[in-house]
Each structure stands twice: as C-alpha cells, then as structure tokens.
C-alpha cells in the first residue's frame, strides 16, 4: 500500500516536472519580443532569396501553418498534446523534418558514445578509487588511480585537442574526426563498424580521462570511511578471503552513494556531448543543438531542452525505484 502510494507520488512528480518544463518552453518563445520565423526569413531575404516585399506574406503564411494565429489557449492545448506524443513540431531550418525526427537521428550517436563512456568511467573510476583506499591492496595497484586524479584538472576541450594533436595528428594512429571515413557509405558490414569504432576511440578517451578522476576522488573518500566500519573488520575476523571482503563488504557498501552520483552524471551527458561532438566533428545531440542555436532554429532548441528535461526527470524517478533494490534499508521505509 505504501509502495503504491510512493509510486503514485513519484509519478505525479514526474508529470509536474514535464508539465512545468513544457509550459516554460511554450511561454518563452511566445512572449519574447523576437520572432523565430521573422528572424529566419529576414536572414533569407537579406541573402537575396526573395524580395523583402514578400517577407510579410511569407511570415503570415508560415504563422498560419504553425498555428500561431490561433488563440493562445488553443495553441497551448495543441502544444501540450503534442508534447504528450513527443511531437515537438517542425524544424525551421530543416523543414519539413520534425524536431523529434532530428532528435531520434542524432540520439543514437550521442547515446552510443556518451552512455558507454559514462558507464566505463563509472566502473573504472570507482574500482580504482576503491582500490586506492584499500590498505591491503598492493602499493603499485593503489597508485594507478593517481594519474587519473591529476587529469581531472585538465578541461575537456583541452583534453580533446591534446589527444587529437598527439595521437591523431602527430602519431597518425587514429582518425582526426568525423563519425566515419569520408567517402564511405554507411552500411551494415564489419568493415564499416570497425571504421566507426576507430572514429569513436579518441572522443571516448577524452571523455573517460576527463571523468574517471572525479569518480576516483569521491570513491576514495567513501572507501576510507567504509574500510574502518565494524562490519568490514568483523568480516576479517570471520577469516574471509581478501577478495570476498573487498567485494561483498567494502565495495558494495561504498558504491551505494555513488549510484546516485551516476544518475546525476547521466544528466550532464548533453553538456559533454556539445563539447566533444564539436571538437571531433561527430553527429549527435550536441551538434544538433549547436546548429540549431546558430541558425535560430527555435523549435529544435526547445525540443532538445524539453527532451533532456524529460529524460533526466524520468531517470531520477527511475533511480528511486532502483535504489531499494541495492540498499535493503530503503525498502522498509
């Protein structure tokens, strides 16, 4: 009964977040003095695409098409029902592509790179951090974490550029950018997959080097606390082998707060995507957002913002249901 109530409450919270976020993205463009359509077509007119006299006519026609001539309330209802169907309208720049089409084309690239590197960084960082704080681990193994900690001071942009310069440009070991080699037509073959993977290595390394250190630091702090806990000592009194104590008594407990950190890290995926995708000329949400900003493609900008908000809020709520699975103490409440 309590669990059901919790589920309902979390679900209501999720709806509230999505509703507020979409209301905000509805309000801002409509009440801002700038008009997306006007700016867009004014730009085209300046470049000589058509006579300025036609501008007003085109704008009016466009506004009718986008439903901007309807009463505000009607627009709001249409907009919200669109959001429910994940329909964020049309892109101005790439009309007649819809915003959700563009997002779903870009998303696999971003997810493929960022999700994999975020998970890898989490695993590597926490393991290294846990080992660094474990007094019984060999000294050399404990020291492996240190270089990663030093690397956290390097901004991601610099990290990407340095990798590009040394590994890609100087050593010519890996491609300099792009999602796949120029001239290759995407297809379902091993050769293409390998080519694509090669293009992902440098950006992946830049992302991993940038974030492993953070996990090391927080995990090491947690580990120092946990290794002094009575239950870890008692495990040793029981005569358990070192690996079992490390894994079942120390690591499992030290990881609990890190899992929350992981959910938060997923929320920053897009920020990293913007930086890394632009350095390495990769397709993805980051590039899409950047292009949209450059070309005043407001529906795409708001669509992405809304999409990210919904994703992060959903992840957070999902975490609340994952957490009891890993920490039995939460289950009872």
């Amino acid at each position: 009964m309590r669990t059901l109530w919790l589920v309902v409450r979390r679900f209501l919270f999720l709806i509230l977040v999505i509703w507020s976020a979409s209301t905000i993205t509805f309000i801002i463009p409509r009440f801002s003095p700038r008009s997306a359509i006007r700016e867009r077509f004014a730009l085209l007119a300046r470049n000589g695409g058509f006579s300025p006299g036609d501008l007003e006519k085109i704008i009016t026609a466009m506004q009718t098409q986008f439903g901007l001539d309807k009463p505000l309330l009607q627009q709001y209802v249409d907009y919200m029902s669109g959001v429910l169907r994940l329909d964020f309208g049309y892109s101005l720049n790439k009309y007649p592509s819809t915003v959700i089409d563009l997002i779903s084309q870009a998303l696999p690239w971003t997810l493929g790179l960022l999700l994999v590197t975020t998970i890898l960084s989490f695993l590597i960082g926490n393991l290294l951090g846990a080992i660094a704080a474990w007094p019984k681990a060999p000294q050399w193994l404990r020291a492996v974490a240190t270089p990663f900690v030093l690397l956290t001071g390097v901004p991601p942009v610099l990290m990407g550029v340095l990798l590009l310069f040394f590994v890609g440009f100087r050593l010519k070991l890996l491609p300099l950018g792009g999602a796949y080699s120029i001239g290759v037509i995407p297809n379902w073959s091993w050769g293409f997959a390998l080519d694509m993977a090669q293009h992902q290595i440098l950006p992946a390394l830049a992302l991993i080097f940038g974030s492993v250190g953070g996990w090391v630091l927080s995990m090491r702090g947690m580990g120092i606390t946990i290794q002094g806990e009575d239950y870890v000592n008692f495990a040793e009194h029981k005569g358990l082998d070192g690996v079992s104590i490390f894994r079942d008594y120390y690591l499992r407990n030290a990881l609990l707060p890190q899992v929350t950190g992981f959910a938060l890290a997923l929320g920053t995926v897009v920020t990293s995507a913007i930086i890394i995708e632009s350095i390495f000329f990769l397709p993805g949400i980051g590039t899409l957002l950047q292009d949209a900003i450059k070309s005043n493609d407001f529906p795409v900008i708001y669509g992405i913002v809304l999409f990210i908000t919904i994703t992060v809020a959903t992840l957070m709520v999902a975490m609340e249901f994952v957490y009891p699975l890993i920490d039995p103490r939460i289950r009872k409440q």
Binding site: D230, N233, F234, A235, D248, Y249, N253, P328, R329
Partner: peptide, 11 residues
C-alpha cells in the same frame, strides 16, 4: 567484536 551493533553488513 566490540560494537556488534555495526558488525553486520547492512546490504
């Protein structure tokens, strides 16, 4: 151990 209260692994 002294402090059996915390001597069992909570998870």
């Amino acid at each position: 151990p002294q402090g059996a209260m915390n001597s069992l692994n909570p998870v």
